[in-house]
Design a protein around this nucleic acid. Structure first.
Lengths: 219, 219
DNA sequence: AAAATATTTGACCATTTGGTCAAGTTTTAT
DNA sequence: ATAAAACTTGACCAAATGGTCAAATATTTT
C-alpha cells in the first residue's frame, strides 16, 4: 500500500496553484447541472450532487454555500452559451441565413448541452422564480430586437406575414429545445436508440427546412 | 355559534351517497396536478397538495395511499384528454384538415389544461421513470400510424417531403405545448400580461398557418 | 334503531434534508 | 522552514418529509 501513497502524490502534484478552486467549481457545476436537470431545484438534494461530483457534501457547501446559490450559478453558466447563439440572429441581413444559422446553433446546443436546456425548462415551467429578472430584462430586450428584424423582413416582403413575430420565435425555441428536453421520448420513438450524430444532423436539416418553409422561404 | 352548526348541516346534506369519494378524488387530483406541475414528483410534498386541496394531509393518503400512486393517477387522467385530441389525426384524409384540427386541439388543451401539460413535461424531462411503458406502447403505436399518414401524404404529393415524419410531429407537439409549459415566459414577453382569449385565438391561427406552410400547404 | 361501513383528523414516527462546525490536511507566501 | 491561507471531511443538528394509526364522526345498510 505504500506505493499507492506515492502514486497519489505524483498524480496530485501537477494540479497546481489556484486551479484547485476552478477545477472543483467546474466539477460541481457539471454535477449540479445533471442532477437539477433530472429533479429540478426542490427535487434535487445536495447529497445527490455531491455523489455525482464524487466529493463529500461539505465540499459542495464550501464552494457554493447554499443549494439555491449553486442553482443560480448553474442557470447563469447556461445563459452564457444561450446568449452566444442568440447574438448572431440579428447579424444576418438575409432571413434565410439568419434562420439557418440560429436554428442550427440552437439544435447544436440541444445536442451538446441537454442538461442545461432541461434545467432552464424546469425553471420556466415552475414559474421562473429565480430567473424573472433576467427574463424581463436581458431576454426581453433580445426578443424585441428579434421581433424588429422579423417585422422588417415582412415589410421588405422577404418572408410572408406571420402575424406576431413572437409566434415564429416560440416555434423555433420549442422545436429545437424539444430535442434536449424530451430526448428520452425522442429516443423511445426512435426504437429505443439514441440518435446517432449523423441522424441528428439529418433532423437538424429537416428542422431548418421546416422553419424556412413556414415563413414562405424555399430551402 | 349554534346557527353556524345548522348552516353547516344544511350545506352538507345535499352532498349525497357515494359522491363523497368521487368529489374528494377530483378535488385532490386537481390540487395534485397543480402542485406537481410546479415542483415535479420529488419536489412536491403531500402537505402542499393537502393545503391546496384544503384537506388534512391524512385525507390525501386515505384516498390515494401514496404520493407516487397519486402522481400516477394524475398522469393517467391527463392522458385521457391527450389521446382524445390525438385520435382525430388519422380520421382526416386531407392533410390540411388533419393539421388544422390537430394543431387547434393541442393548442386548446394547452390553454385549458396547462398544469397537465407541465406535469407530463416534467415527467419526460426527468426520464419518464413512471411513464416508460405507456410511451413505448400506446404512444409509440399512435405515432407509428401518424407517421404512415404523413408518409402517404408525401407519396400522394399532397405535402412536401419532410424527410422523417417524426420531425414534423415533434414540431407540432413542441410548439403547441410551449404555450402551456412556458406560459410564464410567454406572459413576460407579452409585456407581463397573460394572453387574453382573443389573443390566444390569434396565436392559434398563426401556429396553424406556420405548420401548414412548413409542409408546403397554402393556409 | 342499531350494526356495519366509510370518512375525517390530529398525534405520532423513522428517515431524509440543507446546512454548520471544528479538527485535520494541503498549498502558498514569507 | 514556518506561518498563514485555502481546502477537505466526518460528525452533528434542527426542520421537514412521507407515511401510519387509532379514535371520532358521518353515512349506509339491515
Amino acid at each position: 500500500m505504500g506505493n499507492l501513497t506515492d502514486a497519489a502524490k505524483v498524480r496530485r502534484s501537477p494540479r497546481s496553484k489556484e486551479t484547485i478552486r476552478e477545477e472543483n467549481e467546474l466539477i460541481i457545476l457539471a454535477a449540479a447541472e445533471k442532477v437539477f436537470a433530472k429533479h429540478g431545484l426542490k427535487g434535487s438534494t445536495t447529497k445527490q450532487i455531491a455523489d455525482t461530483a464524487k466529493l463529500p457534501k461539505s465540499n459542495i457547501h464550501y464552494y457554493f454555500y447554499t443549494k439555491l446559490n449553486l442553482y443560480r450559478c448553474v442557470l447563469e453558466s447556461i445563459l452564457v452559451d444561450w446568449m452566444k447563439a442568440a447574438d448572431t440572429f440579428n447579424t444576418f441581413d438575409e432571413p434565410r441565413e439568419a434562420i439557418r444559422y440560429y436554428v442550427g446553433a440552437k439544435m447544436d446546443l440541444s445536442r451538446t448541452r441537454p442538461f442545461g436546456s432541461k434545467v432552464w425548462a424546469n425553471e420556466i415551467i415552475s414559474g421562473a422564480p429565480e430567473m424573472e429578472e433576467i427574463l424581463s430584462s436581458k431576454l426581453k430586450k433580445w426578443v424585441d430586437s428579434c421581433v424588429q428584424s422579423i417585422n422588417r423582413w415582412v415589410e421588405l416582403e422577404k418572408i410572408v406575414n406571420v402575424g406576431d413575430a413572437h409566434t415564429l420565435l416560440y416555434m423555433i425555441w420549442a422545436t429545437t429545445q424539444h430535442y434536449a428536453d424530451f430526448d428520452y421520448q425522442v429516443m423511445i420513438l426512435n426504437n429505443g436508440k439514441k440518435l446517432t450524430d449523423s441522424e441528428f444532423e439529418e433532423k437538424k436539416q429537416q428542422v431548418i427546412d421546416l422553419v424556412l418553409r413556414s415563413v414562405g422561404l424555399n430551402p
